[in-house]
């Protein structure tokens, strides 16, 4: 089995774990920048300027860099929003690499001015732009985009059919389902979100099943979905176990605590998953509830 670099093993935020586990084509790994091709590490001003640099690879790198280092100043946001409409950087297959990176970066920068630009990206012909936009719309937390997310799932099973010759489905269902799980609970769109995603509970792609299970828990709070994710911790593929760990952490499902601690995965994944449980306990009860203390004991044992 290959040894992954530590950066890939340590989820930073629960909502981004799924995307970090994924090998996105052309996406730089989550490592500190070494050097730009101009021979030095970037400053914020340079990175913003580089978004319109004649050298397309510098634009691409700058978009990633701004997200990685959480540069949320207005000038960076403005430049990244412009980059969502970029026409110059194209792959042989017609993809828009700069748009992808700009959409990913904007999801990390907590500025809702990006929402309308990201919603427009949901109509882009590049699957990976749509996927990045859906993920980022989920993390930005503005429910105004829910109808647009649902619209991409209107074809039901068609949206989740594999595209021949490509490693993905027709629509970025996993990202869409994940975003709906974050945004739709408690909104007027909740019933429609449930109806749209429910069929994916039995989709042949395990990751989509898990994402749907997690979103169904967020939308319904029914324990059957949390319990199903506990069962997923016994999956034979370690990548699926990692996904289940991050999903359980994201929903803070307390009954999973022991199963998380004893699952066959790296301690860092279990620790980050349990952190999600602890945070939910702290938010909903008190910092020193019996359950919180139990979770901390498990976390201590995984250090």
């Amino acid at each position: 089995m290959p040894i992954l670099p530590e950066a890939n093993l340590v989820p930073v935020f629960h909502h981004s774990v799924r995307s970090m586990l994924e090998s996105s084509p052309g996406q730089p790994s989550n490592m500190p920048p070494v050097e730009s091709s101009e021979g030095g590490s970037l400053t914020v001003e340079q990175a913003i300027a580089n978004l319109t640099h004649p050298d397309l690879s510098l634009r691409y790198y700058a978009a990633w860099w701004l997200g990685k280092f959480r540069v949320s100043e207005p000038a960076a946001i403005d430049a990244l929003i412009v980059a969502l409409e970029d026409e110059s950087d194209r792959t042989e297959l017609g993809g828009y690499p700069l748009r992808r990176n700009a959409a990913r970066a904007l999801g990390k920068l907590s500025d809702r001015r990006a929402v309308s630009g990201l919603v427009r990206c949901l109509a882009c012909e590049d699957f990976y732009v749509r996927e990045a936009a859906a993920q980022s719309l989920g993390t930005l937390g503005d429910p105004i985009c829910i109808p647009d997310l649902l619209w991409l799932l209107q074809d039901g099973v068609e949206a989740a059919r594999p595209v021949s010759g490509r490693p993905h489905l027709a629509q970025p269902c996993e990202a869409l389902v994940e975003a709906l799980g974050l945004l739709a609970p408690g909104t007027e769109w909740q019933p429609e979100a449930i109806a749209r995603i429910q069929p994916f509970l039995s989709h042949p792609v395990d990751r989509l099943q898990y994402a749907t299970t997690r979103a169904m828990y967020q939308l319904t709070h029914e324990t059957v979905y949390g319990d199903r994710l506990i069962q997923a911790l016994a999956a034979s593929d370690i990548n699926l176990r990692r996904v289940a760990l991050s999903d359980l952490g994201a929903i803070g499902y307390l009954p999973a605590a022991d199963a998380i601690a004893s699952s066959a995965a790296e301690n860092s994944f279990k620790l980050f998953s349990l952190k999600g449980l602890l945070e939910r306990q702290v938010r909903e009860a008190t910092p020193l509830s019996e359950a919180a203390i139990k979770v901390m004991d498990l976390m201590d044992s995984l250090l």
Binding site: K275, L278, V282, P287, M296, M299
Partner: peptide, 10 residues
């Protein structure tokens, strides 16, 4: 960080 803070309280 909520988790670290909880651990400090403990």
């Amino acid at each position: 960080d909520l988790a670290v803070q909880a651990r400090v309280y403990r």
